[in-house]
Design a protein around this nucleic acid. Sequence first.
DNA 1: TAATGATTAGGTAATACCTAACAAAAGGAG
DNA 2: CTCCTTTTGTTAGGTATTACCTAATCATTA
Lengths: 141, 141
Amino acid sequence: MDKEQLRLSLNKFLKMYFNACREVYKEINFDRITKIQFRYLKAIRKFEKTTLTELADTFNISKPSMNEVIVKFEKSGLIDREKSTEDKRITVISLTEVGNTLATTNLLESQRAVNKINEALTEEEMTLLKNIFDRFEVDDE
Amino acid sequence: MDKEQLRLSLNKFLKMYFNACREVYKEINFDRITKIQFRYLKAIRKFEKTTLTELADTFNISKPSMNEVIVKFEKSGLIDREKSTEDKRITVISLTEVGNTLATTNLLESQRAVNKINEALTEEEMTLLKNIFDRFEVDDE
DNA sequence: TAATGATTAGGTAATACCTAACAAAAGGAG
DNA sequence: CTCCTTTTGTTAGGTATTACCTAATCATTA
């Protein structure tokens, strides 16, 4: 098969996906969040419950720097902070519902894309596509 | 078909694509370029030859602001500037080869992805995939 | 001579980092 | 059980970069 032709076809599919992304981003006001902030949010989500020190260590930045981010996240309603009862020095950080929505945009985007796939293809085609997609299994980071 | 299963398979494919992107970005040092700078580059590419005023008007920012960006682009070797011979007030802006490469990253990324598809699939499967991709034709912006 | 294109000078606000210093709490040694 | 050290979080103050701004100026054209 001619690679350039396949590339152009791939771009059609990708364009559909990125449109789905843009739709979702618009709906949840994703624009205000920067790349690095998004990475912090995803880390908090991964930890479920975490602390300032753990986050600062994870990203190799100083605690005051991390604190700045965390304070801003709290003011924006993306995280909750609660004093630990066992160790009163510790403040437990977790995502609010809004923060969780932002941190999991990939879920929303791909769900949206799947809906579009569902609309465009037959059952048989979807099965074909799924089988082909499964051929691209990669290790997680 | 179960949508969640299809979504997980889609993610495998997307992960392959984004890995291809990351490979390319690493190779061409894309990290230093911000989102908005990328948009400016793409605009210069679209115009082929343009001027400061045209760019400032296009993005609705002041000419000094635009100038700042342009000067930085020139210092980074992304654009060339040449005085017009017809109207000596005008400086014509165009992309260098490096700038063009950056502005067209999508090309490099999707080419890379196609190579990975080529490695993973048979001729028959690629034809199938191409036909399915073609079902997602969208209007350009 | 007025208008246009580009540029310089100087300023603001936001982001993303930093070090130094410190209070509160916890933990261990004697 | 008290004293000392460590840990956690926070404040204060600082830097560099990005992305914008207005005002003013210079060269050129109409």
